[in-house]
Design a binder for these strands. Structure first.
Lengths: 336, 336
DNA sequence: CTGAAAGCGCTAACAA
DNA sequence: TTGTTAGCGCTTTCAG
């Protein structure tokens, strides 16, 4: 293994000078640095991060935590977030992917070794973990869920607005009677989406069909069951469109329609939320509100890196990103 | 920060003894070890891995590499593999998720810091990377692709057998005329699946419909286009079932049927491969061959840990795991 | 079974 | 702008 000594010897300088060559803010003559770096390169020298960590206490791992990898994590999240992180990850950092629900050995794995943590949070169940990070003074940014906590760093999407846009589209497409299959009770996202629905109904003068306002839990099963219930209503009193709290729910709803012989979108329009990978694949392809995962992840990781760099004052505590409507095939144009 | 010194002082022993308490194979009186561990626990001592690494040269990061996270990685892989790894990951290891196609700084990130690497390989494009790992002497296990290289450690699935089982099922369900939309030319998996198809046709006396033997590339688009082409055939000469090289292809095929007004499975049966997350969600739900990802990942990581532990002789170079058929709704029973 | 001492590769004062 | 020196926290000989 070639060490800093070897480079120093080869370059005819001291260890310190070599060390300085690798520290961007060290005082060193530019020509010296270049010469050293060239020689180091040639020798195949790679700085030993363990040694550096030992003395500087710096860490070179960025942790990304998901609420629960075994179930419930929209799969799209994983690859999207990981990709976004790599987009801006410094060259000597490693990216570690973890699962909050099944984490063991917080001290050794997180506290001792992670320079910062990006939490992709799905539910309040993560709060204990988030607080633990705060207590351990680990730079942390939480994305995907509105924490409603002014001291933390948080990036989330404006779900209310997203649904509101969908409602606008529905109204413009000539829909009048609408229903909704809700999200998990207690979840901020569920409340916000419901709010967007209610605001849309109000502002666009739509009719909320009481029997078609159904509970849900962000699952395919719920989507199927609740849509099946909605389809029991006589066609005349049924809503012409149902807003589903997320794409899983919508996929379930689509299945219910299929099984009931109700064609989508001709007899029933369905809207989702997330733009999960199912959305484009479903039959018919799902019109849905695209959650801005890429933007959240990018903004989050950028914040995080700034925090790690100690630029806390320059970092805004909260970003709210607007989702966008992705129009596919599951909403009928009733004007035709 | 509480260090080994603090523990030593509190326990009235030397640094060395504390160190030994943490090394399972060190010679130390059991009672001493217990006492020290208890005191350490109480003080909140956590061994500093940087320091340990510095002297022992051990690494405490396990790398998992995917061919390409930005596109083409079946999303199911990610969470499944990560979960399987955590199932057996030692408590002080970190799991780092990486992308072969976009990896930078191999030396600092991989060579210097990873104790071992699990490669989830999709294509021969990964070979250069795999060779680099070998050159750097990093314990490596490749899963998901048959490397056909006796010196490496490799876990893959018997795709031929999987398809063969599907063919058996098709034959038993009364299908006679069959077609196939193939995988990416040049890929081992594509060849193996084709082989399974051919073997099935031969052994079960089926009829291969020449016009329904189509090229493909493991994409939804290809599935749609090729199935559309197949559906041009007059119903009488069409196959009653089409085997798709993977689930993406099958989902595309399903869409083509939907758009052509051909009902699945009544008028056309479709089989996939992988058991991706789409499979259960599609309409109708896809009957498919389940790739044994969990088993491959578990076997792979177990092998890898053994290699890291230096037990090379005890590790079998190659495992081949049998896939299983998952019966859902996309194959018709023609006996009815 | 336990302790003393040396040193892993690097950075950070402090001098020069 | 560069070099000298003293550790960072730990493991590992080698004695005892």
């Amino acid at each position: 293994m070639v060490t800093i000594r070897d480079v120093a010897k080869a370059a005819g300088v001291s260890l310190t000078t070599v060390s300085r060559a690798y520290n961007p803010k060290a005082v060193i003559r530019a020509s010296t640095r270049e010469r050293i770096l060239a020689i180091a390169e040639e020798l195949g020298y790679v700085p030993n991060l363990s040694a550096r960590s030992l003395v500087t206490n710096q860490k070179f791992v960025l942790g990304v935590f998901f609420s629960n990898l075994r179930s419930g994590t929209p799969e799209t999240f994983l690859s999207t977030v990981i990709n976004s992180v790599y987009e801006v990850l410094p060259d000597d950092y490693l990216l570690s992917v973890n699962d909050i629900a099944h984490l063991t050995n917080f001290e050794a794995r997180v506290q001792m070794r992670m320079a910062g943590v990006l939490v992709v949070s799905q539910s309040p169940a993560d709060d204990a973990f988030i607080q633990r990070l705060a207590k351990a003074q680990i730079p942390t940014v939480v994305i995907n869920r509105d924490l409603g906590e002014p001291n933390s760093y948080n990036v989330c999407s404006d779900d209310r607005l997203g649904v509101y846009q969908a409602m606008a589209y529905l109204a413009k497409a000539g829909h009048q009677r609408v229903g909704m299959i809700a999200g998990l009770p207690g979840y901020t996202s569920a409340q916000q989406r419901r709010q967007g629905f209610d605001d849309g109904v109000r502002d666009y003068g739509l009719t909320r069909v009481a029997e078609a306002m159904r509970p849900g839990d962000y699952s395919v099963q719920a989507g199927r069951e609740q849509m099946t219930a909605i389809l029991q209503l006589p066609a005349a009193t049924r809503p012409s469109a149902v807003l589903c709290a997320d794409d899983d729910t919508a996929v379930g709803a689509l299945r219910a329609c299929y099984q009931a012989g109700v064609s989508v979108p001709e007899e029933m329009s369905v809207v989702g939320f997330d733009d999960s990978i199912y959305a484009a694949m479903s039959v018919p392809a799902l019109t849905t509100v695209k959650k801005p995962i890429v933007q959240m992840a990018t903004a989050g990781i950028t914040k995080l890196l700034a925090l790690i760099a100690g630029e806390n004052d320059a970092v805004v505590h909260k970003d709210v990103i607007a989702p966008s409507l992705i129009v596919r095939e599951s909403i009928a144009d009733r004007h035709k």
